[in-house]
Simulated assay, not measured.
Amino acid sequence: MSSIRTIALTSAAAIITLSGAALAADAEREVFGTLEDGTEIEAVLLSNDDGVTARVITLGATLQSLQTPDKRGTVDDIVLGHDTPAEYLATPQYLGATIGRFANRIGDATFSLDGTEYTLEANDGDNHLHGGVTGFDKLVWTITDVSEDDDGAASVTMSLTSPDGAGGYPGTVEASVTYMLDDDGTLTIDHRATTDKTTIINMTNHSYFNLSGHKDMRPIVSHDLMIPASAYTPVDSGLIPTGEIRDVAGTPFDFREPMRIGARLRNGNDEQIMLGLGYDHNFVLDEGDEDMRLAARLTAAVTGRMIEIYTDQPAVQFYSGNFLDGTTPGKGGILYRQGDGLCLEPQVYPDAPNKPDFPSARLEPGEEYVHVMKIKTGVTK
């Protein structure tokens, strides 16, 4: 059962673009900071005429800032992040980072391919999380393109080489991420990878959203969330999927209609909520007619801000920021606490390499892994 969207290298699909009128987005390259060893971390600021800006830094190919207007036209930052490169390396929260090689968890930090067992770095108890100790989020990516096009979009492409054996994974992987902001306020994130040896790939973006913004941050428990998923994957005590695909009906995991996040977040009668310390679960998206499906819609009544997440992947992880404990330094001197942000991460299922009935994360030489996701920003009417 395959889910990785791959294409033959002889007919590579073009980056998705959205049409617009006149040129209405700009891209500016700047210095974000330096690491202790003197390595310079660059940033590219993408902006459009409606006040939407996205700053992407080369450390972790990370979305460091996403500024959007609220219903009154006040612009504020709606993603969590850090002000310096050092803070990104000092904290394990993956704020806005590109995750790879495999997003989410792999049980017992092992998996097999064609009879060969591979041992990964165990960095989440006995399990493997988000690519291991030195995943894509902790590496410095190279800017390969910064451009503005005639359709009103601005973009930056970053790339890296992950050598054979990195983190325990087989194959040398060439990875790239393109961030593109259009004149409608949609941020497209296009993940791609190739390999010289059969391997597994599951890349995503790990942004934490808070639609109240940084200037007057309110807990995300007051946000309303809709996820068009009729099922989810329950987990064990290590947050590894058990293999069951469970119906959301009659459970705190039913977000098929907009639901206030805080309404069931502390449901002590639900074992899965207790195991996850809230929501930290994979939602199986309902199938649609289009390649790009709606994965989630998040709204904040106070500011009127809204985002919609679209993806070509089969699932989305909803994480309610349960491990933010007040020790993570955020932008502007804020200490991020539980409830300050949530993640909506399109993906294949967690532990897919060890669950034959789950969609496959396998990537072969001669194929190209493609994961396109979109963050559509706006305000509610």
Rank of each mutant, 00 (worst) to 15 (best):
S2A: 14
T6D: 12
L9Q: 13
A12G: 01
L18M: 11
L23S: 06
A25I: 02
V31I: 15
F32I: 04
L35S: 09
E36P: 00
D37F: 11
T53F: 06
R55N: 00
Q64M: 03
L66T: 01
T74I: 11
D76Q: 06
D77N: 15
H82K: 04
H82T: 01
T84G: 12
P85T: 06
A90M: 01
Q93R: 06
T98W: 09
E117T: 15
N123M: 05
H128T: 09
H128W: 02
T134G: 00
T134W: 11
T134K: 15
G135Y: 10
G135L: 03
K138N: 05
T142V: 06
G152E: 03
A153T: 12
V156M: 02
V156G: 06
V156T: 00
V156L: 11
P163R: 13
G167H: 04
V173R: 06
T186A: 09
T188A: 15
M203Y: 08
Y208Q: 03
N210W: 05
L211Q: 10
H214G: 08
D216H: 13
I227V: 11
S230W: 04
I240P: 01
P241G: 10
I245F: 10
R246G: 00
V248D: 03
D254H: 09
E257M: 13
R266Y: 14
N267Q: 10
G268S: 11
N269A: 12
G278M: 03
D280S: 05
H281R: 02
D289L: 10
M292N: 12
A295E: 02
L298D: 07
T311Q: 07
V316L: 12
Q317C: 07
F318L: 12
F323P: 00
G326I: 00
Y336I: 05
Y336M: 03
Y336C: 08
Q338H: 02
G339H: 11
G341D: 02
L342Y: 05
L342K: 05
C343A: 15
L344C: 08
V348E: 08
P353N: 13
K355T: 15
E364D: 15
P365N: 14
K374N: 07
K381P: 06
